[in-house]
Nucleic acid binder design. Structure first.
Lengths: 345, 345
DNA sequence: TTGTAAGCGTTATCAC
DNA sequence: GTGATAACGCTTACAA
């Protein structure tokens, strides 16, 4: 084949491949997307031409003509929290294996930004959308609706039943760990929660703790529940604050792993033995902290599985396969060996 | 304006907006992309029509006609390592603020996969590409070259000077921390490195340590340098292995934060006091470990800054502005208060 | 099995 | 300042 004659300065296009392979553009297109609908010999010639020219399909043209981009958008709060990074990683990996590419947007818990990046993704023509959490700016659902974009909510379960979702029951997880501590004999509790405004996961965890305590006739004293952003420094600060009350808590439940580790650091600084003098509990991934310091009780969320599952859900929908509209992933209560009953006073 | 007459079941397109605003499609297009080239009154009518119809531009069509997607691709090893997640997060944020969307690909240190996802991104028409590291599959550079895609390598510095890059000098960082330990009086060293095959950052760090030691006439004994994947379990295992030698090391340098924390956990399990009996050093982000356990020396890499810088570099190139073709970001040697000299024997 | 040709929804180049 | 109109590169009936 005479490559020189057809390869000019610009990047090769479908017509160039067609000319070199002595077939029509339509045949090349078919060979590329539906290989079985083309004669093997022809397909081979086309493959050679593609190779020779270094042809790479023009996605925009392909998308315009086929009305699909083989692209999935994900909108998450942040990648700075390992928990979301892991989910996103699994998402990307699963999509890639299916020939899809991930478009990423993050908003750092700002609803306006979330609406903007979601719009940007829709404008880019994503075939599907993964949204983190169940509460979103109204315009987000409006856009999804008018563009008829398949989507799935993750990391929380939609109570209304209106949206397809795959996630964890944050409230139930909180109830579970609280009950565990109650069974251990703890009665003086404190909570260092995440900022609940605009974060339903943080809110549900806090509500879960309150609910479980209430069932035992216990209420959190006003100063015993603080809300903090997810940083180590805030965790330390939070621990100091909940310690200011009249009654020292024997158990402190933290809204996530970062807060728990911050609280742990502050306990060390204050010379408080964990868990002998004070029991610390967190959510999400406490592997690192637990590796270094025993005595942390954890509710572990399988975040990678979540990402893979969300991707599969969407891919199945796009393939027209039936899917469950609501999937609850199980979470695990991880009790480290040395988790202790409350100290006697 | 009579919305009903023009809004059918399908999503609105440019022509619909044009009809409703009583102008031509060309004018709407201009109003959307070059607002100053259109009369304010007209622009206002168009804005209203866009609002009324909930019009969202069709990215593929736009890309096909304008030959740009306002999309940047990033290819990273994994998001499961916080260090890359942070960089990616900053990248996405900076791009979003400039009206660009991030397409993400990851490969988990597999060169074949890297080539595949890079191709996928190019096929999606990314206007620019961020690649992590300086060594890549030849086909990656070939594709970038034939498609004339602006790109920047990150997290390492290209020695050949052939590629634009912004990153850290991993070797220099390793030399620096090793010298620090030497100055402290340490003479018995061990290294728990990352897997160097296919990972030049891990390799450079290991070489840096070797180089600094060699300058003092010290060579690592065969069993004193092990390579491990970046997991906590591997870090623990690595520590046990380097302890098997005849001479117990007084200083163990770990290839990254995860390995260091794993090693730290194992020290605890073995009843070895850190840093009194053995000094532990890591790279990347040791904030969490340091919050829980003092005594770790760290080389800190400003990973978020790297992501933001890489984005800005690319955006400047796309805007036709001049950029430095090689930028080295400074790293910080973080010495925790209790880092100790080697024990006397 | 392969070819022809009509779009897909924008942008860009001209006129006006 | 605004309006026709021809690309942009591919997919997909429909024909052959």
């Amino acid at each position: 084949m005479d490559v020189k004659r057809v390869s000019g300065r610009k990047t090769a296009k479908l017509a160039d491949v067609a000319r070199l392979a002595r077939v029509s553009a339509a045949t090349v297109s078919r060979a590329l997307t539906l290989p079985h609908k083309v004669k093997p010999a022809t397909a081979a010639r086309i493959r050679q031409a593609v190779q020779a020219l270094g042809y790479v399909a023009h996605g925009a043209a392909r998308a315009l003509a086929s009305r699909r981009t083989r692209t999935i958008g994900a909108v998450i709060p942040t990648l700075d929290n390992a928990i979301f990074a892991t989910t996103t990683h699994a998402l990307q990996k699963t999509l890639d294996e299916a020939g899809y590419t991930l478009l990423l947007g993050s908003h750092e818990f700002d609803a306006e930004v979330e609406a903007r990046v979601t719009r940007a993704l829709i404008e880019r023509g994503v075939d599907g959308l993964v949204l983190l959490g169940t509460t979103h700016h109204p315009s987000v659902f409006r856009m999804i609706d008018t563009h008829q974009i398949p989507y799935v909510l993750t990391w929380a379960l939609d109570a209304s039943g209106r949206h397809p979702c795959v996630g964890f029951d944050n409230r139930a997880a909180a109830i579970r760990v609280t009950r565990y501590l109650l069974d251990l004999g703890h009665r003086e509790f404190a909570v260092i929660a995440g900022v609940t405004a605009g974060n339903e996961r943080a809110r549900e965890r806090l509500e879960g703790v309150r609910e479980a305590l209430a069932a035992h006739g216990i209420a959190l004293a006003p100063g015993s529940a603080v809300e903090k952003p997810f940083t180590l420094a805030a965790g330390r600060e939070g621990l100091r604050e909940v310690l200011r009350g009249e009654q020292r808590p024997t158990a402190v439940i933290c809204g996530n792993d970062v807060l728990a580790i911050g609280a742990l650091a502050e306990c060390h600084a204050l010379g408080l033995a964990v868990p002998r003098e004070i029991s610390l509990t967190g959510f999400d991934d406490m592997e690192i902290a637990a590796a270094v310091v025993p005595g942390l009780t954890t509710v572990h969320f399988p975040t990678a599985e979540l990402g893979a599952y969300a991707a599969q859900h969407l891919l199945a929908r796009l393939a027209g396969e039936p899917v469950e509209t609501r999937t609850e992933l199980p979470v695990a209560l991880v009790v480290r060996a040395s988790t202790a009953p409350p100290p006697h006073r």
